[in-house]
Design a protein around this nucleic acid. Structure first.
Lengths: 292, 292
DNA sequence: GATCATTACGAGCCGCGTAATCATT
DNA sequence: AATGATTACGCGGCTCGTAATGATC
């Protein structure tokens, strides 16, 4: 069961095609076919049905393991390399969404103060790819946010050997035009607003998909705002284009009311994903963010 | 980083010798040397110092990952094979210590009732090897016991992708001769007994090592009883050879007093270790043990 | 007949063992 | 000198690509 075969297997399973997998991995059809055959011979079970290509029950089992296995393999390699300090002069943060809060900025300041010469870079990373990017060492740490019950961890799926720690938890608030009938309330329940029109602004507010996941169906999108500027969102809300659910600190502005969310009891949570730490700027960053 | 190389690396690191590792793995010195060289070339870092053989800092990091990685690899293979039902006609339980309690016996009865033709086998397994044996499929499930705070999981180290569930928690009692000055007490603190003489009976009572781990030093062994019979232990205690800490259900007998342990608040916990479950006798066993 | 997986086969590479070499005690 | 790790080298096997074959729509 060598890693190459596993990688090929997940590619085939995912694409449901030998030839596509071959193209993606830079092999010929033949090579892929032989690798799968070898893997099946090794474990002694058919992993795929052909024509159409579908994973068997046994293959399903292997798939469950394979992702984590490959992630850990990458993480092991990256961890070993980090010891040498290959990435000594640079700290790369992979942020999924609008996770660079005040706390993060502050921690970065601490890093700059202690290591003035290291370059700090923040790149946008797809939420699903954070673990892989941290594991492979493409980024040094990852930042992910989402909604969760207070002091509950985010559902990040399989993070393999990586550790996750909370860096911030903020209450949530619903943004609405100042003149909205509910604008004066002290707090409100999300269920009451399922029928309202919402703004889908993945970078600055809660994605509607995730909202639906925790609060049931509904929450139709009136418009989508793909910018990263909170002001843009505020303007849209003020103009009555729809509501938005945001962490309370980023709420507030002219013509906009921010009403705290009372039910369900949820918070906006930001978590840090990192691998093994030795010392140096990355370790300092993590320590500062987690309060030593 | 193929698994073979990793396996060789952990062997060399563990034995601190290329030649010994070669002997253990059935290779020549040369092959081991080449594998390590290839691995180091692959990750780009020296993993071992030679003469004497010692793992470097980078090697240490790799070691941390390697164990879990290989365990998961074995678990993946075993999980896949289990789908085919290679072990359909047999259920093998690996027990570390005296973990086959009434609950386990009862669950086994349920399995026999439902699957009359399957052979049930219980083998003794070293505590440290339970995870590996379950992962590789040598045994279908593992049973491990130990002391822990109420409803706290046992510290089993790395179990990789395996799941652990509690099957029993029993209060602890100190066994002492009926005439012992403390024999009439309703409960007592372990700290008061650190200076007493204890019986080291790993198969039927708490190992003294683990006792020291949770309750501090002391707890000198007066004698060691390696049998698996509780009666033997009771006889020794009655004769005044020493005290023993046992789960309360197995306490009691002529000439012996069992005084409940009050402090620290600890219980005897039995946990089940298992891989992925499909259906069949093993699944039934686990379900019965965990109460569906 | 077109698409796509498998099989046949040859070329190159990789990994092992044997044996010689080098280093450390 | 003896033990033990590394290097040299040749053989066998493995894996890939090309190309032919087979299966399925």
């Amino acid at each position: 069961m060598d890693p190459q075969q596993l990688r090929t297997f997940v590619a085939v399973a995912h694409l449901a095609s030998f030839s596509e997998a071959a193209r993606e991995l830079g092999y010929t059809q033949s090579a892929v076919s032989q690798q799968i055959a070898a893997l099946e011979g090794d474990v002694g079970v058919a992993l795929l049905e052909r024509r159409p290509v579908r994973v068997t029950a046994a293959g399903e089992r292997l798939l469950e393991h394979a992702g984590s296995l490959l992630l850990r393999l990458d993480a092991a390699r990256a961890d070993v390399r980090r010891v040498v300090g290959v990435s000594g002069g640079r700290v790369v943060i992979g942020a999924a969404g609008a996770t660079v809060t005040a706390a993060v900025a502050q921690a970065l300041a601490a890093v700059r103060a202690r290591y003035p010469r290291v370059e700090v870079r923040i790149t946008q990373v797809a939420r699903a790819a954070v673990a892989a990017q941290v594991a492979t060492g493409v980024v040094d740490v990852g930042l992910v946010d989402g909604v969760a019950a207070p002091s509950d961890p985010l559902a990040l799926g399989d993070v393999g050997p990586l550790r996750t720690v909370a860096v911030a938890e903020e209450p949530l608030a619903v943004l609405m035009p100042a003149g909205h009938p509910l604008a004066g309330r002290k707090g409100l329940a999300l269920a009451d607003l399922a029928d309202a029109r919402w703004l889908d602004a993945p970078d600055v507010a809660m994605e509607l998909d995730r909202l639906r996941a925790v609060a049931g169906p509904g929450f139709r999108a009136a418009a989508r705002y793909e910018g990263g500027e909170v002001r843009g969102l505020l303007a849209l809300v003020a103009a009555g284009h729809g509501l938005a659910l945001v962490p309370r600190p980023s709420a507030g502005g002219a013509g906009v009311a921010a009403v705290p969310l009372r039910s369900p009891r949820l918070v906006h949570r930001t978590e840090l994903v990192h691998g093994a730490l030795a010392e140096g700027p990355v370790a300092l960053l993590v320590e500062t963010l987690t309060g030593r």
